[in-house]
Simulated scan of single mutants.
Amino acid sequence: MKSILSFAAAIVLAVSVFSVPAKAVVTFDDFFATDPFAFEVIYLHELGIITGYPDGTFRPNNPVTRAEAITMVGRALKLDGTKRATPFSDVSPSSFASGYIASAAAEGIVIGFPGMTFKPEDPVTRGQTAVILDRAFYFADAPDNTFSDVDGDQYYFDAISRLAYAGVAKGYPDNTFKPDLNVSRVHFAAFLARTVEPSFIPEKRELLNDANDILADLKAKNFESVADYVSADEGIVFCPYSGGCMGDDSGVSFTKAETANFMEDSEEYLWGYQDGSGFPIELTPSQYYDEYMMDAVYNEKERYGITEQPMTMEQIHERFPDATIVEFYYPGTQQYDFMDWQNLNMVFAKDSSGEWHLIAIVNNRWTI
């Protein structure tokens, strides 16, 4: 694999988008750039997910209440936060969190307690946080966690396993997770920022840098270098549409050696079928490159970013449930009301030794 930026350098890169000191960016009177999680909070504040209190404080060490937690998750998911009645008897329609609680209940993110109460002012524990995030966002299947204080029969066991495997939630030096410990506001922000923006996780930042390198290689038609990221055992799959890539036999599979020779291959392949018309897509690799794979302007990314096409992600995960996806997005043009959007998705997965490999390149576009 090619050399990659360190996470420290990535943090510098992330801060470079701000033209003023971090304290001024965050605008909280009690929270500063020296905090270990300052950049996670800056990021969430930039997106409007964290807003703080009317007195200008963030209160980083205060426990997160259930109402606050669901409000932050709801903003991250862009749920409807309009204040309204909820299914819970102890959440007033006038509560700041009522809209997000109602939306989260409708989405199955929160269930509440017996008697249809939500207990909005109760603090959220680390175990509960794992369950909320696991329900709200996609996390790949994971091996069982090995924390000494998390038993397999506990309701949060699987969620903690998935978040820990993804790098979102970490344990303590004594190999405990402390699932019953209340989560502070700054720690909840760290969990949520890593979930929304994986580049806050060091190995996912490295993966993003690899994806940027691969994009440069694709633009240069340098498939020998692209092949460096492909597993010799598993190869790589190419799909023109995410919706047509969900079956195990869909798309075209290339070995590592075949990938290196991609542009020189003169054979015509059936890549799939046009979404909408159903006509077969029968092209040589170089034709497929021009007409589907790189038929848009894709730019290097500093962050993973929140996808504009969540259905694409869902469809790719149907085929590759353990994958991490880096999406490069072309938003389209005003001339066509932005319906000419396209995306190029690099799909990565770990092998048995823990090394990341490029296992698929999946494109997608709007069709009729």
Rank of each mutant, 00 (worst) to 15 (best):
Y172H: 05
C245W: 01
D90H: 11
I109H: 03
E258Y: 07
T324L: 07
A232L: 06
E291K: 10
P331T: 07
L207Q: 06
M313S: 12
P54L: 07
I316N: 11
T86L: 03
D144H: 11
F279P: 00
T86F: 01
E68Q: 13
P331V: 08
T117K: 08
M294C: 05
D55T: 12
Q315F: 01
K23N: 12
V124C: 03
D29E: 12
A85T: 12
S94V: 13
W356C: 00
P280G: 05
P285G: 04
S16W: 03
V183R: 04
G56N: 09
A349I: 04
S253R: 13
P179I: 05
Y289V: 09
F191Y: 15
D217R: 05
N62H: 04
E267L: 04
L5Y: 14
A24S: 09
A22R: 15
R66F: 15
S103D: 11
A38V: 09
E107C: 08
I359N: 12
A166H: 04
T307E: 03
Y330R: 08
P240H: 09
K301E: 12
A164S: 15
R185H: 05
H45D: 01
F348G: 14
F320T: 13
M346G: 11
Y156V: 11
A142K: 13
M293G: 13
D233W: 05
Y292A: 15
E206K: 08
I70P: 00
D174I: 00
S103N: 12
R303H: 14
L79P: 07
V326L: 10
T259E: 02
I306K: 13
S94Y: 15
N222L: 03
S225I: 03
A85M: 06
M72L: 11
D90Q: 10
Q154N: 08
Q309D: 05
V41D: 04
N209W: 04
S253M: 08
V168H: 09
K170I: 00
L133I: 03
T176H: 02
R162E: 10
A166L: 02
D322A: 14
D228Y: 04
G52H: 02
L47C: 08
T284I: 01
A106S: 09
M246W: 00
V64T: 14
A164T: 14
N363T: 14
G127C: 06
V91T: 12
F31E: 08
D134K: 05
K23H: 10
A22T: 15
E291S: 11
T65D: 07
T324K: 08
L77P: 00
Y329L: 11
F18K: 12
I111W: 00
K178N: 09
I236S: 06
S184H: 09
K2H: 13
T312V: 13
N175V: 01
F338P: 08
V15H: 08
I101R: 11
G251T: 09
S266D: 10
T57Y: 03
I132C: 01
G276E: 09
V347F: 07
D144N: 11
V196W: 05
I132G: 00
Q274E: 15
I236D: 01
G276F: 11
V73T: 01
T57D: 10
I4N: 02
T255Q: 11
A189G: 08
A33I: 06
D144T: 04
L79S: 12
E206N: 03
Q335P: 06
K78P: 00
R205C: 04
